[in-house]
């Protein structure tokens, strides 16, 4: 299935959970936040949430800023 992560179209295997996606990106230990289709997901929901075809996913972190 195809999803969009941070504006980039990406191929993912069916049935992948948010936890597995974050892990596959090597971000598990980082302070990141995930939003799917404009719904901000708390970390507790990562495991129970399965990514669906054509989901719009945002993964953000903190960067330098004023």
């Amino acid at each position: 299935m195809k999803v969009t992560i941070n504006g980039e179209e990406t191929e993912l295997s069916n049935g992948i959970t948010v936890t597995a996606l974050v892990e596959s990106l090597g971000l598990t230990s980082k302070r990141v936040a995930v939003e799917i289709n404009r719904d901000v997901l708390s970390r507790e929901r990562w495991n129970e949430t399965t990514v669906q075809d054509s989901d719009q996913i945002e993964i953000v972190q903190f960067v330098g800023g004023g």
Partner: peptide, 13 residues
Amino acid sequence: TVAVRRVNITDRD
């Protein structure tokens, strides 16, 4: 203060 921005998923190291 810090800003919130997309993770660069192609260069995330």
